[in-house]
């Protein structure tokens, strides 16, 4: 465990579910649900970074958006600093809108192109009445400065900036309310390689400076490993494995995690050409009708009969290492 995280839990998610309703049939009488997030539980300690990885459609972004209440959770609890915020009204939620912030994926879509950069960053100051007039301007300049931009940029419009600069404006907007916890929803996947490192380093520095806690959502395992203290792996709405970053890399237990790790192309010709790849067959099934039992079984080379019948639960197989797989019962027998 990284030294900077203490043991105080800041956020605990318990049995969180988010189903999206899709209407089918005449007048929408027969309803179907996309089980985007299905019964996941995890916690994040103060000052640490939890990485959340998985492929598109696995529910990682939905998890982030449900925690910040952009989506109404279907079931479950979101306990932030001891308070369940999953059912708070928008009004009661307002103080938490200052504590929890979000950085978005698309640097082009995440900034309102009709507003100046100064107004984008300053919007939360207006909403929460934090600062007005000269004080507001002062704060906007300070925020721009913190993300490596100058105050001349405040009067410009988003389309004049490059992707990396826009993403930093997005970070400045999130920082404006002095948050404690930031959900980073794929903040670097739309950026060029050389720019990604700029943004990641900035997130690192800001975390050290302000003691921020991050939920870092991404599909790029190498970046997630770089920035996270602990990593959760999601597959089709389920959390299949959570553990320390090094543990995940050294001894991944879930067959999906193993496949995911082996699929990463390493920028080293010899290594990558000689690597023993686990090539998964087929595609991710539809989250409308997920497979029974273990959702990964349709692509898993170790699938047993039991996997189709019984859903594996996420349990601690080693200290701080949680896995949801029936294979674990043999490898790490349950000790009463």
């Amino acid at each position: 465990m990284s030294s900077k995280s203490n043991n105080e839990v800041l956020l605990e998610v318990k049995n969180l579910k988010k189903y999206f309703e899709i209407n089918k049939g005449f007048f929408g009488r027969s309803k179907e649900y996309v089980q985007a997030v299905d019964d996941i539980s995890f916690f994040i300690r103060k000052g640490e970074t939890l990485g959340l990885v998985g492929e598109s459609g696995c529910g990682k972004s939905t998890t982030g958006r449900t925690i910040i209440r952009l989506y109404e959770p279907t079931a479950g609890e979101i306990i932030y600093d001891g308070v369940d915020i999953s059912e708070l009204s928008e009004n009661d939620l307002k103080p938490y809108r200052k504590k929890i912030q979000m950085i978005f994926q698309d640097p082009y879509a995440s900034l309102n192109s009709r507003m100046t950069v100064g107004d984008i960053i300053g919007e939360s100051l207006d909403i929460h009445g934090i600062a007005t007039g000269a004080a507001r301007q002062e704060r906007v300049f300070d925020l721009l400065n913190r993300v490596g931009l100058s105050k001349d940029h405040a009067s410009r419009y988003p389309h004049e900036f490059s992707g990396g600069q826009r993403q930093r404006i997005g970070i400045a907007r999130a920082l404006a309310v002095d948050p404690e916890f930031i959900i980073c929803d794929e903040p670097i996947s739309a950026l060029d390689v050389s720019i990604q490192a700029q943004v990641v380093n900035m997130l690192d520095d800001l975390q050290k400076e302000y003691g921020l806690t991050y939920l870092f959502i991404a599909h790029d395992l190498s970046m997630v490993k770089h920035i996270s203290d602990r990593i959760g792996v999601m597959y089709l709405g389920k959390l299949v494995e959570v553990t320390d970053r090094n543990e995940l890399y050294d001894s991944p237990e879930h067959p999906y995690t193993q496949a995911l790790l082996s699929a990463i192309p390493i920028p080293d010709p010899e290594v990558t050409r000689n690597a023993q790849r686990i090539i998964l067959e087929g595609d991710v099934p539809s989250p409308i009708n997920p497979p029974s039992g273990c959702r990964f079984r349709t692509r898993c080379s170790y699938a047993m009969e039991r996997c189709a019948e019984e859903e594996p639960v996420l349990r601690e197989v080693n200290e701080g290492h949680f896995v949801a797989c029936h294979l674990m019962d043999e490898k790490f027998p349950i000790t009463e």
Binding site: R65, I68, L70, L93, K94, R97, K98, I100, Q101, M102, F104, Q105, D106, A109, S110, L111, N112, E123, S124, I127, H128, G170, R173, V177
Partner: peptide, 10 residues
């Protein structure tokens, strides 16, 4: 996303 961002700002 910019609309979502505004929502998260309250």
């Amino acid at each position: 996303e910019f609309v979502l961002a505004a929502k998260t700002l309250g």
